[in-house]
Structures are given as C-alpha cells and as structure tokens.
C-alpha cells in the first residue's frame, strides 16, 4: 500500500486526518463542557453560559458535595440501580429461555412463534392501550412498572437465538446422550459457550434501562420517591424545578447558591458509570451489532 500515492491522495489523507480529529473533538467537547462547568464557581457560571473549556473561576466541588448529600438525588440513584438490575435480570430471563427454544430446529410451531414476536416490531397497540394494560394489571406507581412492561426486546431475542443456533449440534447431542435434560443443556452447555453474546445483550439492556426516563414519567404519578435518576435529571435540567432537590433537611440558601452547579454535577454523576465502563465494553458493542446483522 501507499507505494505510488499521488499528491492529491496525500493531500486528501492530511485533510481526512484533520477532519476526523475535529470530529472527535465534537464528540468529546459537550461532555468536557459539562465536566468543567460542574467544578466552576457558581456565581461566575451563572453569568457565563458559553462553552466552558476550563472551569470558570476557582474550581470547587461544592456542586458535587450538594448533590451527594441530597437525599432525593441519592434515592433516585439507588432506584435507578434497582431498575437497571431488575429490568435487565427479568429481560435476560425471558430472552434466554425464548432464544433457547427458538434456536431448536426441531421445535414445532417455531414459525408461528417467531411471527408472534416479530409482528410486534411492525405493529403495536401504541402508547394509550399499553398504558391502560399497565394500569389494568395494577403496576402504576409501583417499581414493577419500570421492570416488566416494555423492557424485553424482540431484536435482542433474535440476536441471541441466532447466536445459540450456531452452536454445533454435536455438542448438544453429546450432552443429551449423557442424559442431560433441556434445562441442564441450557445451563451447562449453551450458556457457558455463549458468554460473548450474553455480555452483549446484558450490555444493551443495561444501557437502555440506565438511560430510560419516559415510562417512569407516565407510570409513576404519585410516587416521587420511586423516581429514577433520569426523571429527576429531567426536572433539574429541563424543567428547572427544585422539586427533585428540596428535602425536609435541605438548606434553601445552599440550593440557591449551588443551583447552577447542581445541573452539571448531577449530569456528571449520571453519566459517570457509562463513561467508566464504555471503553471496556465497546469491543462487545461492535460484535453485538455484527451478530445482529446476520439474518437468522
């Protein structure tokens, strides 16, 4: 490669690298801005709303101290962890069982079952009837509303099924001859050789649940104490309301003083877990997209 590159190609190469470097900055800059704003002097920050390339004024961790000592935000953080773990565990349970069944070529009713699932990808009852069903089963204002409805993804089931069906038949046959039943084959043969796809799907479910806010906003009506972090964030950032901040022990003076910082500090603590794990899981990310693109 590159033995006979023309001048035009060299110029293109240089511009390409400059362009991609600038593009990378565009991806990083907004997050950097939030980070710098979160440790700025609240008074100076209040007056400047331009891009924060470095902290405005003397760096301070006052915003973080306020956020981390605010009971409402800590509770919302805890709720989010419950939702992420609960919804991911529940969805994985359904997804694994469904994928195992559907990956068996000798299964009767495989086609109609697949149709039952994929049809929901192209037609849905929509927002209102779904809301009424959730209300009908009594999940409104309970944590279940964010763990069960709308969490299982057909796409993820199909990805996992495609992956399971590439396991050599010989491996499954051998286990069967050894007298293993389906549950044992699933737990001791299929799952151990499918660690990569399991990691990918857990990751997709976990990211989605960590970042979800909409269902919480319609299913949690009277229970502010069950709010996930994203919903509190919405109030703090977008509705500029203090509802998510005020507790019986909070000092109104501190709220007013740190109000401009709280928004940025809360964003930072909400994206921090994602920022920490993403460089490590992004390679699974790539393989996940690839497994999904194989037509099953």
């Amino acid at each position: 490669m590159g033995s006979r590159r023309t001048t035009g190609e060299k110029i293109f190469s240089i511009f390409n690298i400059i362009f991609l470097t600038l593009l990378s900055l565009v991806f990083i800059l907004p997050v950097w801005h939030v980070l710098m704003a979160s440790i700025s002097d609240p008074d100076i920050l209040q007056a400047n709303s331009g891009l924060a390339l470095r902290p405005w004024g003397q760096p301070t961790f006052g915003g973080y101290q306020f956020v981390l000592s605010n009971k409402n935000i800590i509770r919302a953080y805890g709720n989010t962890i419950v939702y992420v773990v609960g919804a991911t565990a529940f969805s994985m349970f359904i997804t694994i069982l469904a994928a195992y069944g559907l990956s068996r070529k000798d299964l009767y009713f495989r086609k109609p079952l697949l149709f039952l699932l994929t049809f929901t990808m192209i037609f849905s009852g929509g927002l209102i009837p779904t809301y009424m069903v959730v209300k009908g089963v009594g999940m409104i204002d309970t944590m279940w509303a964010l763990i069960i409805p709308g969490t299982v993804s057909v796409y993820n089931i199909i990805v996992m099924r495609t992956s399971f069906s590439t396991i050599p038949d010989g491996l499954l046959e051998a286990a069967k001859i050894d007298g293993a039943g389906h549950l044992r084959i699933l737990l001791q043969v299929v799952l151990p050789v499918s660690k990569a796809v399991l990691a990918v799907i857990v990751m997709f479910y976990a990211i989605r649940n960590w970042n979800a806010w909409f269902n919480a906003s319609i299913y949690l009506q009277k229970r502010r104490d069950l709010f996930p972090l994203q919903l509190s964030l919405r109030e703090i950032i977008l509705q500029t309301s203090n509802n998510s901040l005020v507790t019986e022990s909070s000092d109104p003076g501190a709220i007013d003083r740190y109000r401009p910082l709280v928004k940025y500090s809360t964003i930072m603590i909400s994206v921090l877990p994602m920022l920490v794990v993403y460089p490590f899981i992004q390679k699974y990310f790539v393989s996940g997209v690839m497994i999904g693109s194989i037509k099953g």
Binding site: F93, V133, I157, L186
Partner: peptide, 29 residues
Amino acid sequence: QNWPVYLMLVPVVAYFIIFHYLPMGGLAI
C-alpha cells in the same frame, strides 16, 4: 419428550400476549 422446551417458551408467550397483544386488542377503545 421435550416438554421442558415448550415450558421455557411459556414466559415469553405470556409476556408478549399481555404487554403487546392485549394493547392491540385494547385499540378497540
């Protein structure tokens, strides 16, 4: 012979009937 496989499919079928097909029926409103 293979009833456990069919049993494993019960949760997913129930889930989709309750949270996807019931709402479709609910469109009657």
